[in-house]
Amino acid sequence: MTGWLFSVTAGLLFAIGLYGVLIRTELVRRLLAANVMATAVFLFLIVVAAETPDGPDPVPQAMVLTGIVIAVSLTAFALALIRHFRAVTGESDPEGGDDD
């Protein structure tokens, strides 16, 4: 029951994140959506780890732990990129530059 519930939640979170990445053009929001997608993937891994019969499998847990730290450093880097982009172009999204 628990595994099934959290698998479905992870799937829906992935869908919400992907939807955000596709729909939102404002860059910070898109980054946030990508973060939700990453969290969904982590959740998948941990659900699988939790359901391993011999007790929680430490390998996916360690991977997710690494993943959380990587995700924050990538977020920081992406935000620096966005700031740089905005300073160069004065735009907050990359696709809207041509109509004004």
């Binding site: 829906l12 979170l13 992935f14 992907l18 939807y19 729909i23 929001r29 696709e95």
Partner: peptide
């Protein structure tokens, strides 16, 4: 922070994302 319509229309993005998410959940399960 304006938000323009993206290249992907909403009516396409929503089912596409849902399909990806549900498919992934099914695969993982």
């Amino acid at each position: 922070l304006r938000d323009r319509p993206s290249g992907v229309p909403k009516w396409l993005a929503l089912p596409l994302s849902l399909a990806a998410g549900v498919g992934l959940a099914w695969l993982m399960h």
